[in-house]
Write a protein that binds this DNA or RNA. Structure first.
Lengths: 203, 203, 203, 203
DNA sequence: AATGAATGAGGATTCATTCAT
DNA sequence: TATGAATGAATCCTCATTCAT
């Protein structure tokens, strides 16, 4: 069944394109990134990229969604760990540090889409943000259900959690802080998040 | 003395260019923004813009610095108000809400410069971020001096304050939340910030 | 083998561009010449020209070198003919007349590069001039070896030959003299050249 | 009578503009030369130049005519000296060397107009060339009248004289030859010219 | 399916020229 | 008369996209 092999080869090419796209978009931004360079680095012809993605914009969006899937999985995994909510939020913070470190291209391009200015991608970015918040809100609701925290506005609280953890990592990286010095803040940030949610952290 | 009039007219034109530049850059990003459109909207000829700014990049940087000056003044004013640290941080949060509301172009373009991927402005953006942090750090040090808070790493703490307040507002706006609903979170956010800094807020 | 066809088509396009470039550059000079017009006249798209030449400057230089190759071949052929040195110099003069007549664009643009002020091409123009002189000097040396002429400074003599023949044709054309009236001077010019070289022409 | 003073000041300014124009045009060519730079170097305002010359083109032409007047005077002076025709032609050659040396800007820009490609100035350049030839032709006719030379076509002969003397100097300078080495060829060139004109030089 | 040669829209920038002062 | 701020026409070049092979 050559079909499966072809299917696999096709998917492999698609992934290669997405990876190189993340690299270029993270390096240069949407406008400065060059489709030809992405194709070349992906080892395919200039025209071939259009057999996989409709145009530059769609490639960017596909890459964004691909990254979001991975990040969401990380967020979910961090929040699904055993332990108190505080410990799990600390894991969330550490997850962001890890993502920023291990695949900085993806992290940067994702943050740029969220907070960047290009209105062309605002709708998609909003969707991403909502996905992230939904995952966090789910965990918060479970914690509220078992009386671990008290909060009336789950959505607002989820945003507090996300803002503090994610944007702290982002800003710290912009400032050039080392992974170590950022990691050292993990428990402090987790404690801060928790205390703001309406329960004094497990003293 | 026509000189003064000329000087005033010149400065007025400069400000008009900066305002329209903020509008265009916020709407389309650096690359997609069109110098000709900015000139047209500012009511001047295409070439005239180059009598005020060396090139597109310098116009962008000038605009960024101009915005930063205003934002810094707002941050300073908020943190200089009478009251407890918690109250002042609440004012800081409200200041960000106000800036985002009253001049959303400036707020967006400023955030974009900080968190966007355009490497061309990273150095300048980092400088802005450091300026913001310095202002916050100064206030925190004063509070620590009078025993209001306990914290060893002032810089990290300042980043926590900024991350939570500023990026909360940014994200909430991306989500389309109303000014009212964001403002309602003011005291909660302030309390969260404070509790993370090492002192239980004035219960 | 489509490769050969492609290669041929490509070379044909290249030649078409060079020909039209010579036309435009001869008509308007380097600065006033319009790349878009050259492309249009060559029957290709605006961008296509950049698949063949890096930029306007490189196109100009390529055209110059292409012309120089042809002119050098003509000079060589004229000087390689059978006959006395005087006869061969008369052939050289006639060669210039022919070049100026048959491809006046190339002749004009070539002269312009040599004697124009555009410093940007001075280095290249000097190289051309030296190539021309080298060819003439070679012939003069052979003539000196067989005692046909006497001269100590071959290089200066070569320049006398070139100056008189080439620039006579150029000036005569500027004055609007007909090909016939210029050709009529051929033997006179050749005799003049020879007599200056240190031997009375075969009376 | 302030009128005269004004008249003098005006003429002085005009000359200053022409001098700087020659410098810039010789340095950069017509298109690359910058009117603003010429004005600045002439110590006047940008707009003032248009009180003296209609536009860039007219300024160039005025400069060209001004240079031509000086060169013509030199040519006339050289040919008016006492001595044989051969001696006077040697003086002509030396005059070109001197002009090229002492006011290379003018020499270059003048040559460029004559042999350059810019058709916009072809008519004017032709007029210059004809003026030069007329002066030479006049002298040749006198020499023929007294039997010093024999030639039927005075105009063609004049062009031979001019081509050899002027373009030899021009080419030699393009090649970077020193004034000394060029001057050393003076008598050889003069003899060559003469011998070509139909009389054996005074052996 | 894959390729890459060809295309042409789009835009920052320069600078000759004008004109209000 | 002199000025220089303002103007906008003019153009090279890039690069996303198409399409014949």
């Amino acid at each position: 069944m050559p079909k499966i092999v072809d299917e696999q080869a096709r998917e492999a090419t698609r992934q290669r394109i997405l990876r190189e796209a993340a690299h270029e978009f993270a390096r240069l931004g949407f406008d400065q990134a060059n489709i030809n360079v992405i194709a070349e680095r992906a080892g395919i012809g200039k025209g071939t990229i259009y057999l996989y993605f409709e145009n530059k914009r769609e490639l960017f969006l596909a890459m964004l969604r691909s990254i979001a899937r991975i990040h969401l999985a990380s967020i979910r995994a961090a929040l699904a760990m055993k332990g108190t909510l505080e410990q799990r939020i600390e894991q969330l913070f550490r997850a962001f540090i890890r993502l920023a470190e291990e695949d900085s291209d993806s992290f940067n391009v994702s943050m740029s889409a969220l907070y960047g200015v290009n209105r062309a991608f605002q709708a998609e970015a909003t969707k991403l943000l909502q996905d992230y918040l939904a995952v966090i809100a789910l965990v918060l609701e479970e914690s509220r259900a078992i009386g671990e925290i008290q909060t009336t506005n789950i959505e607002a609280t989820a945003l507090q959690v996300l803002s503090l953890t994610e944007s702290y990592v982002l800003s710290a990286r912009v400032l050039g802080w080392s992974k170590q010095s950022i990691t050292r803040q993990a428990s402090a940030v987790a404690r801060q998040v928790l205390s703001g949610i309406g329960i004094h952290p497990s003293s």
